[in-house]
Amino acid sequence: MTHTALVAWSGLAIGLLFGATGQRTGFCLFRGLQRQWLDGDGRKLRAFALAMAVALLGSQGLASLGWVSLGASLYPTASLSWLLVPLGGVLFGYGMALANGCGARSLVLLGSGNLRSFVVLICLGVAAYMTMSGVLAPLRLWLEGLTALPLPARDLPALLAGFGLTPGLARGLPSLLLGGSLLAYALSHGPLRAAPREWLGGLIIGALIPAAWYATGVLGQDDFEPVRLASLTFIAPIGDALQYLMLATGTALGFSVTLVLGVLLGALAAALLTRTFVWQGFPTPQRMLRSMAGGTLMGIGGVLALGCSIGQGLTGFSTLALTSFVAIAGILAGTRLGVSGPLALSKV
């Protein structure tokens, strides 16, 4: 098997695991934030924090073993658009509140029979490509050039090394401090410890991030045609998957497309096996409009912020890229706007 085929199959396998886990556990940043802020139920949010800790420790572990060089991924950028990255995060967060879940969650829900998610996904994929290379791309590039801000370093380890720390310490210190505090935040919570479904979900999904780095970075390594280092993210890949459906004869099947397919199939299998597959549609046209707006905002915002709740929240964060911290703050702010305050949306 060629290395590119191996990477594509790994994408499918990782996607299947993600889809089945998501379907069984309801792993979701949006649901976590909403329950925390509205109902005071912190289990889902802390399960997400657990996933962040596992993703961070696993990925930095891989990097310190020298297996992957996380700097080759797209997150540790040398400069940052001070406007588009936080704005993209806010748009994504608000879109997530409108659509009642992120892109990955919509794939899982579609696999469980939720046709509302189908509408979200189509709008998301099209909006993502509009922003990446379509009608909105010239505007994006113009604004990016106008608001580019050089960063003092690409990621936290590089920043700390600039203060004179040894490379090992510069990587280990922020990883252990951030990973440790997230672990403590998650595991100190009795209700989470008492809910194995929740913490298992966080554990498995967190572990899939370094697994995907391994797939693209180690299995995809080739002197002549290396596969681009990537891990789980869903905005561009949902667009890629739609494009692949339409242009398969002229495009190569890559990790992102098989990942999306895997999530869908994994969720479908889990739903069928546990007899939880239920067809669902829109009760009103207003709800449909809301889903369309949510998908579109997530597509645009996810591209501007270089990632979604998974792509920046777990994957970008696991590289300790400075840009990722800005994007995550934007996503949290946008979600907050959608859940409470003057712009809050009704809970559905």
Binding site: L74, T77, M132, S133, P138, L141, L306
Partner: peptide, 11 residues
């Protein structure tokens, strides 16, 4: 050929 999907990359 479309514009690059990957955003700002430093030299």
């Amino acid at each position: 050929v479309t514009v690059s999907g990957c955003l700002i990359r430093g030299d």
